[in-house]
Design a protein around this nucleic acid. Structure first.
Lengths: 233, 233
DNA sequence: ACATCGACTACACGCATGTGTAGTGTCCTA
DNA sequence: TAGGACACTACACATGCGTGTAGTCGATGT
């Protein structure tokens, strides 16, 4: 297997850090449930008891990993916030970039519902980028900036979370240089072309208004289905 | 708890179907590892042995669930393919719609790397929709249609997979009528506005060309980082 | 009527896991 | 130099799990 986390020589890291790194790798590659404390201890080169000594429990170990990632993201966030390279550029790419070796862990954690603060931090970052982008936007958005930032962040993370399926669909491993390039090209193409025309959007939005006016209680499926019907008549 | 899967009275379903439904609920709500055969058997109203009798193993049970979902998706796919309601409308919404109660399972399964055929089927559907959309597109896309369909599908599924985080960010549960509406509005807004201008896209693409010309082997993180740099100079 | 087969249950096995406990070495301090 | 705190290990415990086995019940076909 190729080494994914090549920090500053894990040999001279403190045992606690080595355990944390090993945990992030195991959690990222096998998921929280499937990963074992013994396995983590082994790749960290320590006894399983030491893991418990330092982190208390498996759940606490996971939270420590989340906190570490959150700290790292926050640092990156502040960096971008005050940096000169802020005004332009897709924050999505920025965010995805610096995560580097921890991307697998992040993807797993998010998929499992964990790492809330990391996601929220990314939403904030996206929100800031949207604030700039909104200035040159002709029409007025009809939803919260935070809502758009949230959904946009989720969409940006989709590729990482579903990297297995995306790799299969693309025909190349996403973590290879070729896959990397192809993904970038695809993202650029998608991000630069709206999937809905302004007119279609207005039409659908009108249908939504009608639905909302009815105020009938419906489940998500029914609502979307209704949306489709209205859109097609 | 609210009942999510209200099929045709689970009482008169065959035991095998009841087990499958219970499994999809448990797998969807707790994940594959955390879900137990005993728990599934209990909510299905059967003994744990019967689960094994019908499905052989836990893994096989999961695959049966995947296959069931795949069959359902394929049926829906063909329906849309030949239906008159095909030409227009967002296939994304269509796909997300009819999944209904199985959305939680689908999200979990995809996040865990399973349910490949379901994803692939959705990609095909998206591909067909893109084929139509491409006809009215002014410029020529520089990537495979399949690549765009794959990434687009992943992005469309992001909200479902990360529904916990999206719900937190939106401030309302995604599976409530309000969350449903808000999500629809947000998606419409995002889908009808490109995040990158054509010029920016061309610029970034040029940077990518330069990088690709170098032909240096880089990992994903480095490449994206480089992309950012080029974009900002 | 009897035999056969499949749905279905009860129960036990083996195992891996998280966790708890006792103990060892080692460095730092008074 | 005594002692205490801390990093660290070895080992045992309890538990919950997937899986295997034996057996019951009922319908069906001959």
């Amino acid at each position: 297997m190729t080494v994914t986390t090549t920090g500053p020589d894990p040999e001279d890291l403190t045992a606690r850090a080595r355990i944390r790194d090993a945990a992030m790798r195991h959690f990222g590659e096998q998921g929280f449930e499937r990963a074992t404390i013994r396995g983590i201890a082994e790749t960290a080169g320590v006894s399983s008891g030491l893991v418990r000594h330092h982190f208390g429990s498996k759940q606490a170990l996971r939270e420590a990993c989340d906190a570490y990632l959150a700290r790292m993201i926050r640092r990156l966030n502040d960096e971008v916030r005050s940096g000169e390279a802020l005004r332009k550029g897709n924050p999505v790419a920025t965010a995805q970039a610096a995560m580097g070796p921890y991307q697998r862990y992040l993807a797993r954690a998010l998929a499992e519902g964990s790492a809330e603060s990391v996601f929220d931090e990314m939403v904030e970052l996206s929100e800031q980028w949207l604030a700039d982008a909104d200035e040159t936007r002709p029409d007025v958005p009809d939803v919260d900036r935070k809502a758009r930032a949230t959904v946009g962040t989720a969409m940006a993370l989709a590729v990482a979370v579903l990297h297995t399926h995306v790799s299969r669909g693309l025909g190349v491993d996403l973590y290879s240089p070729e896959g990397d390039l192809l993904l970038a090209r695809t993202l650029i193409d998608i991000y630069s072309h709206p999937m809905l025309s302004i007119e279609d959007a207005a039409e659908v939005r009108a249908a939504l208004d009608r639905i909302q006016a009815e105020q009938t209680k419906t489940d998500r499926g029914a609502t979307l289905r209704r949306l489709e019907e209205h859109h097609h008549d």
